[in-house]
Amino acid sequence: MFSNLFHPLHGSSWYIAILGCFALAGILIAILQSLPHALRRPLIRIVTFLGGLYYAVEYFWPTHSMPIPGSPKHMGNFLTPFISPAANMLSVIAGWTIGLGTINLCQIHGKRLLHAKEGKLNSLVFFIAMIAMFTLAVLKQAHPNLINKNLYMLLFEGLYQALDSTMFALVAFFLVSASYRAFRVRTGEATLLMVIAMVVMLGQIALGQQLTIHLPDHGFWHNFRVEIIRDWILTKASSASVRAIAFGIGIGNLAVALRVWLGLERGAFFDS
């Protein structure tokens, strides 16, 4: 019965099914809205728990051989066949969320334009740029003629690439200024940080490596080559610290995920 229900439809029956979906959604919203306030919070918790249940159970449930076309060694359990549809559905839903940010930005810039506030010209530029780029990105695929492709490339190469890379390249200037003004060896720890940073910097540039290039390729003195010292710092000493910090972060992440899943998390989302 279930598989019969999910059968592709065409023509008028398709329209009826779509309208039916929306009508059901309307009824669902009306039912949800009529729920007493005290029930809303537990309902959110239940839905959150159910959201995580599928993936968690699918992961922990013992697996057995489950050959699929082209992959005879495939392993899985009774929930595995649903992974692909579920993942597809969730990534489409993630795609829909893009509108949330867009609406937010449009609200801010729309208000500025409508009330003719300071920076209204910039807000107008924002709207024009957004609409132009969106239209061309869609047109390029829907009608891939030369003009659409070239206009798209003009905006992509001429504006987007230049603006994006320059925005991040600016950081290099601020780093230089900070290196000169703020990088002071006031304490032992700061001195250690500075010395290591300098060795790593020297070890990762061609001219720095030339300083010790004449040291032998093997043997004791080889270890004093600047790129070897840098490699030792990165692979032996600093990697241990990074790993220790990462373990902490990983356990923290897992604890937060568990709290969210089980509805134990406090704060704006679950409480108010």
Partner: peptide
């Protein structure tokens, strides 16, 4: 490669000079 090297050397020099 050389641009990156010279820029790094400048930064190292600036850190040292500042200190």
């Amino acid at each position: 490669s050389v641009s990156a090297s010279v820029a790094h050397l400048l930064i190292i020099a600036l850190i040292l000079l500042g200190n």
